[in-house]
Design a protein around this nucleic acid. Structure first.
Lengths: 239, 239
DNA sequence: CCCGGCCTTACGTTTACCTTAATTTTAAGG
DNA sequence: CCTTAAAATTAAGGTAAACGTAAGGCCGGG
């Protein structure tokens, strides 16, 4: 199963002891892949090469300052980045946050707080949809419209209500629209107990879902099977 | 156009002057819809009724503490919530963040910092798609495009879907693009059981893959054979 | 020329998935 | 607490896509 701990992190700091400390903290917290750089040049190279999923930057670096480094990296990528700094002046915090930092942590810092804040940011970015889809987000598939909040499916034929399981499954598919979702992944998002005997159950629910959202459930246009891999919701057809 | 400023915010604080201050700050920042509550009871009611897109909670409230309020609201919703508190003790910050707060700001605070932090969080949550700039990881070979997440191959001729084995093989080749991959190595990445009788099987799959990604499968341009060594995927031809 | 490595095609098999229907569980109302 | 309907879960039979197998052909190198 994929978690935020699969994220690859880049740590940029010129003090070796801080690097070691951060490495220890992050590994203990569950992050398996932590890279480190001790100056801007290394950071730039690693960032371009490794494409980390998040970064922790010191503000003072031997060959430049963290602010301009952040600015530069932000142009390439939108991944979470936060500052770690001994400078706690108001204007520095404002500058850092203004440049698009997700947080500004001052040294000395509490290891647990750093981990909590980092986790929070990563969770928001990499599990975004669970954060509640805004307002009236509807799924539009050809002539079919699905309103998630009300659980109503509108077709030419009329309106139908989604059941709890159908709702959960469709939502998961919607969150990964255009991409393949494994049967396992679907089960996990619709059933609490990770144990489920027959994955036939899933198929039956998929069938019922198809009966509600497809024109011809036997020849699905939207909820497609990808043999040996899972299911996939077709991209919205804008017209 | 929809922006994060369409977000509806709930402010919970028992000091009237703070409420007024926050209202002013948030309106100046561009947030049009700001609700306020001065105790837990009001907050609960408003939260259930108005379903705000974010909340700012004071820690000390007349009829309870912000921590348990947050805990309660978190069970209902995953919207961004942050603490505002006069108590700056380490354990309080840890407790707040541990309960799922997106930030913990201490009074007195800089208005601009609050806005920057709030903006950052809302941006992450409500514009998540842009936050993952890794775009669509695609393999581009001349006029052929392969989207790995969806398993779709696009050619002039039309779209085809990759099967599980084809997907696995092509991915392996893609990961080593421009370099030779041995038959053995390919087999290991597509088959679980390291034992496989006929390596002819691999050839058949290679053939099928070529039928999907090559213009002329019999005269491959992209998926090349390297006699006595293995196979190799040609480098992307950017044009 | 011959041999080994690779290609190609056809065909039989497997397995993942579909479909329907019966059964069990859950929820709502009296 | 019982009744009833809706929803979820089993179960089993059917189907076709995906896969594996094998046999014959090609082509380059020795």
């Amino acid at each position: 199963m994929k978690t935020i701990f699969d994220a690859k992190l880049l740590v940029v700091d010129d003090e070796p002891e801080i690097i070691i400390l951060l490495n220890t903290i992050l590994h203990q917290a569950g992050f398996a892949r932590v890279l480190s750089a001790e100056n801007c040049q290394q950071a730039r190279a690693l960032f371009a090469l490794e494409k980390p999923d998040g970064a922790i930057l010191d503000v003072t670096l031997p060959d430049g300052d963290g602010f301009s480094l952040m600015q530069e990296l932000r142009q390439q990528s939108n991944v979470p980045m936060l500052f770690l700094s001994a400078r706690d002046e108001d204007e520095n915090r404002l500058l850092g946050l203004g440049l698009g930092a997700d947080d500004y942590i001052t040294k000395p810092f509490l290891p647990r707080e750093l981990v909590l804040r980092l986790n929070g940011i990563l969770r928001r970015v990499y599990q975004p949809r669970q954060a509640q889809p805004t307002a009236e987000e509807c799924l539009v598939l050809g002539t079919v419209t699905v309103n998630f909040k009300s659980g109503i499916v509108k077709t030419d034929a009329g309106e139908k209500n989604l059941t709890a399981k159908e709702h959960a499954l469709l939502k998961k598919l919607w969150e990964n629209q255009g991409h393949i979702v494994t049967a396992d992944s679907l089960c996990r998002s619709a059933w609490d107990d990770d144990l489920y005997g027959y994955e036939n159950t899933l198929m039956v629910h998929i069938r019922r879902l198809r009966e509600k959202i497809e024109v011809d459930p036997s020849q699905p246009q939207y909820l497609l099977t990808v043999r040996g891999m899972g299911y996939k919701l077709a991209k919205e057809t804008k017209q």
